[in-house]
Design a protein around this nucleic acid. Structure first.
Length: 408
RNA sequence: GCUGGAGUCGUCUAGUGGCAAUGACAAGAGACUGUAAAUCUCUCGCUUUCGGGCUUCGUAGGUUCGAGUCCUACCUCCAGCA
Protein backbone atom coordinates (compact mmCIF):
# COMPACT_ATOMS: atom_id res chain seq x y z
CA UNK A 1 0.00 0.00 0.00
CA UNK A 2 1.23 3.46 -0.89
CA UNK A 3 1.83 5.50 2.24
CA UNK A 4 0.45 9.01 2.17
CA UNK A 5 0.69 11.27 5.22
CA UNK A 6 -1.41 14.40 5.39
CA UNK A 7 0.26 17.10 7.44
CA UNK A 8 -2.32 19.81 7.14
CA UNK A 9 -5.76 20.44 5.69
CA UNK A 10 -7.50 23.60 4.54
CA UNK A 11 -10.91 22.87 3.07
CA UNK A 12 -10.29 20.35 0.31
CA UNK A 13 -6.66 21.43 0.05
CA UNK A 14 -4.04 19.45 1.89
CA UNK A 15 -0.31 19.30 2.45
CA UNK A 16 1.19 15.84 2.60
CA UNK A 17 3.98 13.44 1.80
CA UNK A 18 3.69 10.47 -0.57
CA UNK A 19 6.20 7.81 0.45
CA UNK A 20 7.23 5.92 -2.68
CA UNK A 21 9.82 3.14 -2.91
CA UNK A 22 12.15 5.63 -4.59
CA UNK A 23 11.66 8.46 -2.12
CA UNK A 24 9.18 10.95 -0.76
CA UNK A 25 7.12 13.51 -2.62
CA UNK A 26 6.13 16.54 -0.60
CA UNK A 27 2.73 17.55 -1.87
CA UNK A 28 1.31 19.52 -3.53
CA UNK A 29 4.02 18.88 -6.10
CA UNK A 30 4.58 19.30 -9.80
CA UNK A 31 5.83 16.13 -11.51
CA UNK A 32 8.08 16.56 -14.54
CA UNK A 33 6.81 15.14 -17.81
CA UNK A 34 9.44 12.63 -18.97
CA UNK A 35 7.37 10.97 -21.65
CA UNK A 36 10.18 8.96 -23.21
CA UNK A 37 12.04 8.49 -19.92
CA UNK A 38 13.63 11.90 -20.32
CA UNK A 39 12.52 15.43 -19.70
CA UNK A 40 13.17 16.96 -23.09
CA UNK A 41 16.32 19.10 -23.23
CA UNK A 42 17.17 18.41 -19.56
CA UNK A 43 19.42 15.95 -17.77
CA UNK A 44 18.17 14.27 -14.62
CA UNK A 45 20.80 16.18 -12.65
CA UNK A 46 19.38 19.43 -13.96
CA UNK A 47 15.92 18.21 -12.96
CA UNK A 48 17.11 17.46 -9.43
CA UNK A 49 18.96 20.78 -9.22
CA UNK A 50 15.91 22.78 -10.26
CA UNK A 51 13.92 21.15 -7.49
CA UNK A 52 11.86 18.49 -9.21
CA UNK A 53 10.69 15.71 -6.91
CA UNK A 54 9.29 13.17 -9.38
CA UNK A 55 8.92 12.39 -13.07
CA UNK A 56 6.16 10.83 -15.17
CA UNK A 57 6.88 8.67 -18.21
CA UNK A 58 4.50 7.30 -20.79
CA UNK A 59 3.79 3.62 -21.33
CA UNK A 60 2.76 4.07 -24.97
CA UNK A 61 6.03 5.73 -25.95
CA UNK A 62 8.19 3.31 -23.99
CA UNK A 63 6.48 0.25 -25.48
CA UNK A 64 7.40 1.52 -28.96
CA UNK A 65 10.93 2.46 -27.97
CA UNK A 66 12.99 1.08 -26.34
CA UNK A 67 10.51 -1.61 -25.29
CA UNK A 68 9.46 -2.38 -21.74
CA UNK A 69 11.64 -5.46 -21.37
CA UNK A 70 14.75 -3.41 -21.92
CA UNK A 71 13.76 -1.01 -19.14
CA UNK A 72 12.91 -3.93 -16.88
CA UNK A 73 16.36 -5.41 -17.43
CA UNK A 74 17.93 -2.04 -16.74
CA UNK A 75 16.40 -2.10 -13.28
CA UNK A 76 13.28 -0.06 -13.93
CA UNK A 77 12.52 3.47 -14.99
CA UNK A 78 14.28 5.27 -12.13
CA UNK A 79 17.47 3.27 -12.59
CA UNK A 80 17.35 3.23 -16.39
CA UNK A 81 16.98 7.00 -16.64
CA UNK A 82 19.34 7.73 -13.75
CA UNK A 83 16.57 9.68 -12.08
CA UNK A 84 16.73 7.54 -8.93
CA UNK A 85 13.69 9.31 -7.46
CA UNK A 86 9.93 8.79 -7.40
CA UNK A 87 8.38 7.88 -10.75
CA UNK A 88 4.96 7.68 -12.35
CA UNK A 89 3.83 6.12 -15.61
CA UNK A 90 0.78 7.11 -17.56
CA UNK A 91 -1.06 4.11 -18.97
CA UNK A 92 -0.74 5.08 -22.62
CA UNK A 93 -4.48 5.35 -23.04
CA UNK A 94 -4.46 9.06 -23.66
CA UNK A 95 -1.89 8.77 -26.44
CA UNK A 96 -3.38 5.71 -28.08
CA UNK A 97 -6.82 7.27 -28.22
CA UNK A 98 -5.39 10.32 -29.92
CA UNK A 99 -3.96 8.21 -32.76
CA UNK A 100 -5.79 7.85 -36.07
CA UNK A 101 -7.41 4.53 -37.04
CA UNK A 102 -7.76 3.12 -33.57
CA UNK A 103 -9.95 0.01 -33.28
CA UNK A 104 -11.71 -0.10 -29.95
CA UNK A 105 -13.58 -3.07 -28.59
CA UNK A 106 -14.58 -4.00 -25.08
CA UNK A 107 -11.61 -6.33 -24.96
CA UNK A 108 -8.81 -4.17 -26.32
CA UNK A 109 -7.58 -1.25 -28.36
CA UNK A 110 -5.78 -1.96 -31.63
CA UNK A 111 -3.53 0.75 -32.98
CA UNK A 112 -0.57 1.34 -35.23
CA UNK A 113 2.76 2.69 -34.10
CA UNK A 114 3.14 6.31 -35.18
CA UNK A 115 6.80 5.51 -35.87
CA UNK A 116 6.66 2.61 -38.32
CA UNK A 117 3.01 1.64 -38.58
CA UNK A 118 3.54 -1.66 -36.75
CA UNK A 119 0.36 -3.18 -35.34
CA UNK A 120 -0.18 -3.19 -31.60
CA UNK A 121 -2.96 -4.26 -29.33
CA UNK A 122 -3.35 -3.05 -25.79
CA UNK A 123 -5.65 -4.31 -23.10
CA UNK A 124 -6.05 -3.14 -19.53
CA UNK A 125 -4.04 -6.22 -18.59
CA UNK A 126 -1.20 -5.57 -21.02
CA UNK A 127 -0.98 -1.95 -19.93
CA UNK A 128 -0.56 -3.14 -16.35
CA UNK A 129 2.11 -5.64 -17.41
CA UNK A 130 3.94 -2.98 -19.38
CA UNK A 131 3.85 -0.60 -16.44
CA UNK A 132 5.13 -3.30 -14.08
CA UNK A 133 8.00 -3.97 -16.45
CA UNK A 134 8.80 -0.27 -16.71
CA UNK A 135 8.63 -0.30 -12.98
CA UNK A 136 7.45 3.14 -11.97
CA UNK A 137 6.38 3.61 -8.37
CA UNK A 138 2.91 4.73 -9.39
CA UNK A 139 0.91 3.47 -12.38
CA UNK A 140 -2.23 4.82 -14.00
CA UNK A 141 -5.14 2.61 -14.87
CA UNK A 142 -5.74 2.12 -18.60
CA UNK A 143 -8.64 4.44 -19.29
CA UNK A 144 -10.87 5.10 -22.25
CA UNK A 145 -11.00 8.57 -23.73
CA UNK A 146 -14.23 9.87 -25.15
CA UNK A 147 -14.32 10.42 -28.91
CA UNK A 148 -16.14 13.72 -28.44
CA UNK A 149 -17.16 16.00 -25.61
CA UNK A 150 -20.83 15.09 -25.90
CA UNK A 151 -22.59 13.71 -22.86
CA UNK A 152 -23.28 10.37 -24.54
CA UNK A 153 -19.68 9.84 -25.57
CA UNK A 154 -18.40 10.92 -22.18
CA UNK A 155 -20.76 8.55 -20.43
CA UNK A 156 -19.79 5.66 -22.68
CA UNK A 157 -16.08 6.34 -22.19
CA UNK A 158 -16.51 6.65 -18.44
CA UNK A 159 -18.42 3.39 -18.14
CA UNK A 160 -15.85 1.52 -20.18
CA UNK A 161 -13.10 3.10 -18.09
CA UNK A 162 -14.82 1.68 -15.01
CA UNK A 163 -15.07 -1.81 -16.48
CA UNK A 164 -11.46 -1.63 -17.54
CA UNK A 165 -10.52 -0.39 -14.09
CA UNK A 166 -11.81 -3.65 -12.60
CA UNK A 167 -9.55 -5.55 -14.99
CA UNK A 168 -6.60 -3.25 -14.21
CA UNK A 169 -6.99 -3.80 -10.49
CA UNK A 170 -7.23 -7.58 -10.89
CA UNK A 171 -4.16 -7.70 -13.12
CA UNK A 172 -2.24 -5.29 -10.91
CA UNK A 173 -2.81 -7.50 -7.87
CA UNK A 174 -1.76 -10.57 -9.82
CA UNK A 175 1.45 -8.85 -10.88
CA UNK A 176 2.05 -7.60 -7.35
CA UNK A 177 1.80 -11.17 -5.97
CA UNK A 178 4.15 -12.46 -8.66
CA UNK A 179 6.54 -9.64 -7.90
CA UNK A 180 6.48 -10.46 -4.18
CA UNK A 181 7.37 -14.08 -4.89
CA UNK A 182 10.19 -13.06 -7.19
CA UNK A 183 11.49 -10.59 -4.67
CA UNK A 184 11.40 -13.29 -2.03
CA UNK A 185 13.28 -15.80 -4.17
CA UNK A 186 15.79 -13.15 -5.16
CA UNK A 187 16.40 -12.32 -1.55
CA UNK A 188 16.75 -16.01 -0.68
CA UNK A 189 19.25 -16.67 -3.46
CA UNK A 190 21.06 -13.41 -3.00
CA UNK A 191 20.72 -12.51 -6.63
CA UNK A 192 21.18 -8.81 -7.22
CA UNK A 193 18.26 -6.75 -8.30
CA UNK A 194 18.04 -5.82 -11.94
CA UNK A 195 20.28 -8.55 -13.33
CA UNK A 196 20.01 -12.21 -14.16
CA UNK A 197 18.21 -13.90 -17.00
CA UNK A 198 14.61 -13.10 -17.45
CA UNK A 199 12.08 -13.97 -20.04
CA UNK A 200 9.30 -11.48 -20.48
CA UNK A 201 6.27 -11.85 -22.62
CA UNK A 202 5.59 -8.81 -24.75
CA UNK A 203 3.40 -6.46 -22.81
CA UNK A 204 1.18 -6.14 -25.84
CA UNK A 205 0.30 -9.81 -26.07
CA UNK A 206 -2.29 -11.73 -24.16
CA UNK A 207 -1.17 -12.46 -20.59
CA UNK A 208 -0.93 -16.20 -21.12
CA UNK A 209 2.44 -16.87 -19.57
CA UNK A 210 2.26 -14.92 -16.37
CA UNK A 211 3.60 -17.71 -14.20
CA UNK A 212 6.69 -18.04 -16.40
CA UNK A 213 7.35 -14.32 -16.24
CA UNK A 214 10.10 -13.11 -14.00
CA UNK A 215 10.02 -9.62 -12.60
CA UNK A 216 13.13 -7.62 -12.06
CA UNK A 217 11.89 -5.16 -9.50
CA UNK A 218 12.26 -5.71 -5.80
CA UNK A 219 10.11 -2.79 -4.80
CA UNK A 220 6.37 -2.30 -4.53
CA UNK A 221 4.45 -0.65 -7.33
CA UNK A 222 1.16 1.16 -6.97
CA UNK A 223 -1.96 1.78 -8.99
CA UNK A 224 -4.09 4.90 -9.37
CA UNK A 225 -7.62 4.68 -10.76
CA UNK A 226 -8.51 7.38 -13.28
CA UNK A 227 -11.64 9.48 -12.84
CA UNK A 228 -13.42 10.44 -16.06
CA UNK A 229 -16.63 12.30 -16.90
CA UNK A 230 -15.54 15.34 -18.89
CA UNK A 231 -17.26 18.57 -18.01
CA UNK A 232 -20.37 16.87 -16.63
CA UNK A 233 -20.46 16.98 -12.87
CA UNK A 234 -22.97 14.15 -12.53
CA UNK A 235 -20.68 11.89 -14.53
CA UNK A 236 -17.68 13.10 -12.54
CA UNK A 237 -19.50 12.26 -9.32
CA UNK A 238 -20.47 8.84 -10.63
CA UNK A 239 -16.90 8.17 -11.75
CA UNK A 240 -15.40 9.36 -8.46
CA UNK A 241 -17.75 7.09 -6.54
CA UNK A 242 -16.86 4.13 -8.70
CA UNK A 243 -13.13 4.75 -8.38
CA UNK A 244 -13.42 5.36 -4.65
CA UNK A 245 -14.84 1.86 -4.28
CA UNK A 246 -11.81 0.21 -5.87
CA UNK A 247 -8.82 -1.19 -4.05
CA UNK A 248 -6.30 1.29 -5.48
CA UNK A 249 -3.55 3.42 -4.00
CA UNK A 250 -4.66 6.77 -5.34
CA UNK A 251 -6.45 8.54 -8.14
CA UNK A 252 -5.72 10.26 -11.39
CA UNK A 253 -8.19 12.86 -12.58
CA UNK A 254 -8.24 12.73 -16.36
CA UNK A 255 -9.81 14.49 -19.28
CA UNK A 256 -9.42 17.97 -17.82
CA UNK A 257 -8.81 20.47 -20.59
CA UNK A 258 -9.69 23.92 -19.37
CA UNK A 259 -9.82 26.04 -16.25
CA UNK A 260 -13.46 26.84 -16.95
CA UNK A 261 -15.52 25.00 -14.36
CA UNK A 262 -12.48 23.11 -13.16
CA UNK A 263 -13.00 24.27 -9.58
CA UNK A 264 -16.56 22.94 -9.45
CA UNK A 265 -15.55 19.69 -11.08
CA UNK A 266 -12.65 19.14 -8.68
CA UNK A 267 -14.85 20.04 -5.75
CA UNK A 268 -17.32 17.38 -6.84
CA UNK A 269 -14.69 14.71 -7.44
CA UNK A 270 -12.43 15.34 -4.47
CA UNK A 271 -15.33 15.56 -2.03
CA UNK A 272 -16.15 11.98 -2.98
CA UNK A 273 -12.68 10.43 -3.27
CA UNK A 274 -11.29 9.15 0.06
CA UNK A 275 -9.13 11.89 1.46
CA UNK A 276 -6.40 9.61 2.78
CA UNK A 277 -5.30 8.63 -0.72
CA UNK A 278 -3.33 10.91 -3.07
CA UNK A 279 -4.82 12.49 -6.20
CA UNK A 280 -2.99 13.35 -9.39
CA UNK A 281 -4.39 15.92 -11.82
CA UNK A 282 -3.38 14.48 -15.17
CA UNK A 283 -1.83 16.78 -17.72
CA UNK A 284 -2.56 20.09 -16.06
CA UNK A 285 -0.02 22.75 -15.21
CA UNK A 286 0.78 24.86 -18.21
CA UNK A 287 -1.27 27.73 -16.82
CA UNK A 288 -0.36 28.62 -13.24
CA UNK A 289 -4.02 29.18 -12.39
CA UNK A 290 -4.64 25.47 -12.95
CA UNK A 291 -2.13 24.65 -10.22
CA UNK A 292 -3.69 27.05 -7.72
CA UNK A 293 -7.19 25.77 -8.45
CA UNK A 294 -5.99 22.16 -8.46
CA UNK A 295 -4.28 22.45 -5.10
CA UNK A 296 -7.08 24.49 -3.56
CA UNK A 297 -9.60 21.81 -4.46
CA UNK A 298 -7.67 18.83 -3.25
CA UNK A 299 -5.18 17.67 -5.87
CA UNK A 300 -1.77 16.57 -4.62
CA UNK A 301 0.33 16.15 -7.73
CA UNK A 302 0.31 17.54 -11.26
CA UNK A 303 2.12 16.85 -14.48
CA UNK A 304 2.22 18.76 -17.71
CA UNK A 305 4.27 18.92 -20.88
CA UNK A 306 3.48 22.61 -21.17
CA UNK A 307 6.39 24.13 -19.28
CA UNK A 308 9.09 22.34 -21.26
CA UNK A 309 7.26 22.60 -24.57
CA UNK A 310 6.71 26.32 -24.03
CA UNK A 311 10.39 26.60 -23.19
CA UNK A 312 11.55 24.93 -26.38
CA UNK A 313 9.34 27.28 -28.35
CA UNK A 314 10.65 30.39 -26.61
CA UNK A 315 7.62 31.14 -24.42
CA UNK A 316 9.01 31.76 -20.95
CA UNK A 317 7.27 32.24 -17.63
CA UNK A 318 7.76 35.37 -15.57
CA UNK A 319 5.79 36.62 -12.59
CA UNK A 320 4.26 39.15 -15.00
CA UNK A 321 3.03 36.50 -17.42
CA UNK A 322 4.65 34.57 -20.23
CA UNK A 323 6.95 36.37 -22.64
CA UNK A 324 8.21 35.32 -26.05
CA UNK A 325 11.96 35.71 -25.71
CA UNK A 326 12.33 35.59 -29.50
CA UNK A 327 10.58 38.95 -29.85
CA UNK A 328 12.77 41.76 -31.19
CA UNK A 329 12.24 43.89 -28.09
CA UNK A 330 14.52 41.58 -26.07
CA UNK A 331 17.53 42.03 -28.38
CA UNK A 332 19.16 44.58 -26.07
CA UNK A 333 17.51 43.59 -22.79
CA UNK A 334 20.41 42.94 -20.44
CA UNK A 335 18.27 42.09 -17.40
CA UNK A 336 17.81 38.52 -16.19
CA UNK A 337 14.77 36.74 -17.56
CA UNK A 338 13.15 37.05 -14.12
CA UNK A 339 14.71 39.06 -11.30
CA UNK A 340 13.08 37.08 -8.48
CA UNK A 341 14.06 33.68 -9.89
CA UNK A 342 16.78 31.50 -8.42
CA UNK A 343 17.21 29.10 -11.34
CA UNK A 344 20.52 28.52 -13.12
CA UNK A 345 19.24 30.38 -16.15
CA UNK A 346 18.16 33.53 -14.33
CA UNK A 347 21.18 33.58 -12.01
CA UNK A 348 23.65 33.56 -14.90
CA UNK A 349 22.17 34.83 -18.15
CA UNK A 350 20.41 37.87 -19.57
CA UNK A 351 17.33 38.15 -21.74
CA UNK A 352 19.54 39.47 -24.54
CA UNK A 353 21.67 36.33 -24.35
CA UNK A 354 18.65 34.01 -24.32
CA UNK A 355 17.21 35.98 -27.24
CA UNK A 356 20.47 35.50 -29.12
CA UNK A 357 20.54 31.75 -28.40
CA UNK A 358 17.00 31.35 -29.68
CA UNK A 359 17.57 33.47 -32.78
CA UNK A 360 20.64 31.44 -33.65
CA UNK A 361 18.82 28.20 -32.83
CA UNK A 362 21.44 27.00 -30.37
CA UNK A 363 20.64 23.85 -28.37
CA UNK A 364 21.52 25.72 -25.19
CA UNK A 365 18.55 28.03 -25.73
CA UNK A 366 16.19 25.11 -25.16
CA UNK A 367 18.20 23.81 -22.23
CA UNK A 368 18.28 27.10 -20.34
CA UNK A 369 14.66 27.90 -21.18
CA UNK A 370 13.56 24.45 -20.02
CA UNK A 371 15.48 24.80 -16.77
CA UNK A 372 13.74 28.09 -16.11
CA UNK A 373 10.19 27.09 -17.08
CA UNK A 374 10.33 23.78 -15.25
CA UNK A 375 11.80 25.48 -12.19
CA UNK A 376 9.17 28.21 -12.35
CA UNK A 377 6.29 25.75 -12.25
CA UNK A 378 7.92 23.40 -9.71
CA UNK A 379 8.72 26.37 -7.49
CA UNK A 380 5.23 27.82 -7.84
CA UNK A 381 3.70 24.57 -6.57
CA UNK A 382 6.30 24.38 -3.80
CA UNK A 383 5.27 27.86 -2.72
CA UNK A 384 1.63 26.83 -2.82
CA UNK A 385 2.64 24.09 -0.38
CA UNK A 386 4.44 26.58 1.86
CA UNK A 387 1.52 28.98 1.78
CA UNK A 388 -0.89 26.20 2.78
CA UNK A 389 1.41 25.31 5.68
CA UNK A 390 1.58 28.87 7.00
CA UNK A 391 -2.02 29.76 6.19
CA UNK A 392 -1.26 32.34 3.51
CA UNK A 393 -2.61 30.43 0.53
CA UNK A 394 -5.39 32.93 -0.17
CA UNK A 395 -3.03 35.91 -0.22
CA UNK A 396 -0.42 34.08 -2.25
CA UNK A 397 -2.97 32.95 -4.81
CA UNK A 398 -4.43 36.41 -5.20
CA UNK A 399 -1.14 38.25 -5.44
CA UNK A 400 0.33 35.72 -7.85
CA UNK A 401 -2.64 35.53 -10.19
CA UNK A 402 -3.34 39.31 -10.11
CA UNK A 403 0.21 39.99 -11.23
CA UNK A 404 0.60 37.08 -13.63
CA UNK A 405 -2.64 37.69 -15.51
CA UNK A 406 -2.81 41.48 -15.17
CA UNK A 407 -2.16 42.00 -18.87
CA UNK A 408 -5.11 39.89 -19.94
C1' G B 1 39.59 46.43 -75.42
C1' C B 2 37.21 41.83 -77.57
C1' U B 3 34.01 37.46 -76.89
C1' G B 4 30.50 34.95 -73.96
C1' G B 5 27.28 34.83 -69.63
C1' A B 6 24.42 37.20 -65.78
C1' G B 7 21.47 41.33 -63.15
C1' U B 8 13.88 39.27 -60.08
C1' C B 9 11.23 40.96 -52.29
C1' G B 10 16.92 41.73 -46.97
C1' U B 11 19.67 36.99 -49.26
C1' C B 12 19.66 32.84 -52.65
C1' U B 13 16.16 31.39 -56.24
C1' A B 14 11.57 29.91 -59.94
C1' G B 15 9.77 32.28 -64.03
C1' U B 16 11.32 32.65 -71.92
C1' G B 17 4.69 37.16 -74.12
C1' G B 18 -0.94 36.93 -70.25
C1' C B 19 -3.09 37.61 -62.36
C1' A B 20 2.80 41.67 -57.45
C1' A B 21 5.66 37.03 -59.79
C1' U B 22 7.77 30.40 -57.30
C1' G B 23 10.40 28.12 -53.37
C1' A B 24 13.87 28.37 -49.40
C1' C B 25 16.26 31.24 -45.81
C1' A B 26 16.20 35.69 -43.04
C1' A B 27 12.81 39.02 -40.60
C1' G B 28 8.05 40.20 -37.75
C1' A B 29 4.15 38.06 -34.81
C1' G B 30 0.95 34.22 -32.78
C1' A B 31 -0.35 29.27 -30.89
C1' C B 32 0.93 25.29 -27.63
C1' U B 33 -2.18 21.79 -20.91
C1' G B 34 -2.04 12.89 -19.23
C1' U B 35 4.30 15.41 -25.83
C1' A B 36 3.60 11.71 -33.47
C1' A B 37 5.56 19.07 -30.98
C1' A B 38 13.83 21.58 -30.90
C1' U B 39 6.60 21.76 -33.55
C1' C B 40 2.69 24.34 -36.04
C1' U B 41 0.14 28.85 -38.02
C1' C B 42 0.03 33.77 -40.00
C1' U B 43 2.50 38.23 -42.17
C1' C B 44 6.44 39.44 -45.28
C1' G B 45 6.53 45.90 -52.40
C1' C B 46 3.34 50.33 -50.74
C1' U B 47 -1.64 51.23 -49.58
C1' U B 48 -6.84 50.05 -48.39
C1' U B 49 -13.31 51.50 -46.17
C1' C B 50 -10.52 44.26 -47.49
C1' G B 51 -14.07 45.21 -52.97
C1' G B 52 -9.74 47.04 -54.42
C1' G B 53 -6.05 50.88 -55.63
C1' C B 54 -0.88 52.01 -56.76
C1' U B 55 4.24 50.99 -57.93
C1' U B 56 7.58 46.82 -59.25
C1' C B 57 12.10 42.07 -61.99
C1' G B 58 19.87 46.91 -63.24
C1' U B 59 18.78 51.97 -66.16
C1' A B 60 16.51 54.38 -70.42
C1' G B 61 13.93 53.76 -74.74
C1' G B 62 11.24 50.54 -78.26
C1' U B 63 7.93 46.38 -80.35
C1' U B 64 3.04 44.50 -78.61
C1' C B 65 -3.85 44.66 -76.85
C1' G B 66 -0.34 43.00 -73.08
C1' A B 67 6.88 42.72 -71.42
C1' G B 68 10.42 40.06 -65.69
C1' U B 69 10.21 37.45 -70.46
C1' C B 70 11.30 40.07 -77.30
C1' C B 71 14.51 44.36 -79.59
C1' U B 72 18.20 48.67 -78.99
C1' A B 73 21.54 51.49 -76.09
C1' C B 74 23.79 52.19 -71.59
C1' C B 75 25.42 50.70 -66.48
C1' U B 76 27.27 46.84 -63.23
C1' C B 77 29.20 42.01 -62.22
C1' C B 78 31.41 37.17 -63.70
C1' A B 79 34.38 33.99 -67.04
C1' G B 80 37.76 33.48 -71.10
C1' C B 81 40.98 35.99 -74.54
C1' A B 82 44.12 40.20 -75.21
Amino acid sequence: MLKFDIEKRNGLARVGVIHTPHGDIKTPAFVGAATRATVKALTMKEMRDLGSQAILANTYHLILRPGTELIEKAGGLAEFSSWHGPTFTDSGGFQIFSLPNVKITEESVKFKSHIDGANFEMTPESSMQAQWAIGADIHMAFDHLAKSESYEDMKEAMERTHRWLDRCVTEHKKLARANDQMSFSRAASGRPVGTGDRRSSSPCQAPDSLDKRQFGHSYEQHLYAVVQGGTFNDLRAESAEYCAGEDVDGFGIGGVFTADGMDEMLKTVNSILPEYKPRHLLGMGQEPIDLFVGAEFGCDTFDCVGPTRMARNGSLYTLDGRINIKNAKYTHDYAPLMEECGCECCKNYTRAYLHHLFKTDEITAKVLASIHNEHFIVRTVDRIRESLLNDTFGEYKKSFLDRYYKHI
